[in-house]
Write a protein that binds this DNA or RNA. Structure first.
Lengths: 192, 192
DNA sequence: GGCGTATATCTAGCATTGCTAGATTATCTG
DNA sequence: CAGATAATCTAGCAATGCTAGATATACGCC
């Protein structure tokens, strides 16, 4: 086993360490506290090593985000496989989306607010991202023969509730009622 | 007429000039190009004069945003007073919201994405902001006895469509279909 | 084992950012 | 006109993302 193998392994470990440090620091102090110098200090290397792993700060944020998509997909999947009834399953998915955003605000921000340059409709769209969207499509397919547009506006609504709520533009009270209303809108809109 | 009056007028003019410069520069080159130095150069004063008008860069963005709320409110109002039928009026408001966001992306960003510290549910919520939300409530009131929660999730959906579309997370094609779907959801959800 | 080379890492620094203190100029008052 | 007040500017600070050149480390070969 050549030594260069161990080197590659070490690099991969450090890579993950940087991503984890960025995520954790962002979660505890916000993304504005995530500077290359602080990340370097946490990883206990000098600042320029970050640039041997990532093209720049944006790339680090992007890496955090892409990991987050996988987490979200798993979270949504688990929520809807717990219940059989399609309406309840849909409600569970919506609720799970919002609670994910609530519990991991910085991660969510990296995924959906910060300008990470992730291709979406393209071939090299991260599979984790496609998976997350797919879970939403799955939850909606009992109610719509063409679930994709429905998934888009539902996703938009969930995202809007998240960011507008976070910045105080929508009050926290009445959250459950809004989820009910959202689900009710979807399931009652049969025939089109 | 004391000379200090002219001074106050000059100050007000310069204040507006700064806000306009920020808005225009953001609209043409994006908010990341809006630096205090560039603003000072446009206004043809030195950098520190900005701080005699505003508490900092955030306050300038906030001023731009608050002007924008008034514009949006007027835009939405005009859209729905053009048509009589409630369904068409609702559709017009949704469409107007999206086109506003589309035509003035930087302004929209200042209003709904950038972290301007604007109180919302509070007493000193800018009246223009309340007015914009009120237009949405008005358009929804024919369809719901309690239009406020409905307005919140509709606003959320519109906002989500905007930002997710802007960052390439939702494709531009099918935009009209999504508006139709959104309206259809609302008007078909009678009884609750 | 020892040496030259390639790789990895660090130190130091650049340009830009938001913001501020102290000097300087213009303006008003007695 | 002199003194005081207000407005404005010059110069600079600390922090940021990022990079070049120097330095230390690990490797392959004899």
């Amino acid at each position: 086993m050549p030594i260069s193998d161990r080197r590659l392994r070490d690099r991969a470990v450090r890579h993950d360490l940087i991503v984890a440090a960025a995520r954790d620091l962002a979660e505890s102090e916000g993304w504005e506290a995530v500077t290359t110098r602080r990340l370097a200090a946490i990883v206990e290397y000098s600042q320029p090593v970050l640039y041997s792993h990532f093209d720049g700060k944006d790339a680090i944020v992007r890496a955090v985000a892409i990991e987050g998509f996988a987490d979200l997909a798993a979270h949504l999947r688990q929520a809807q496989t717990m219940v059989d009834d399609p309406v309840l399953a849909l409600r569970a998915v919506c609720s799970a989306y919002l609670s994910f955003a609530d519990q991991r605000p910085a991660l969510y921000q990296a995924m959906f607010v910060l300008p990470i340059d992730v291709p979406f409709g393209s071939d090299d769209t991260p599979s984790s991202l496609r998976a997350a969207f797919g879970e939403l499509v799955r939850a909606l397919s009992p109610f719509d023969a063409q679930p994709d547009p429905r998934a888009e506006i539902t996703w938009a609504a969930l995202h809007g509730l998240t960011v507008l709520g976070r910045s105080g533009r929508i009050p926290p009270a009445g959250r459950e009622a809004r989820i009910d209303l959202l689900v009710s809108q979807i399931v009652n809109d049969r025939g089109n």
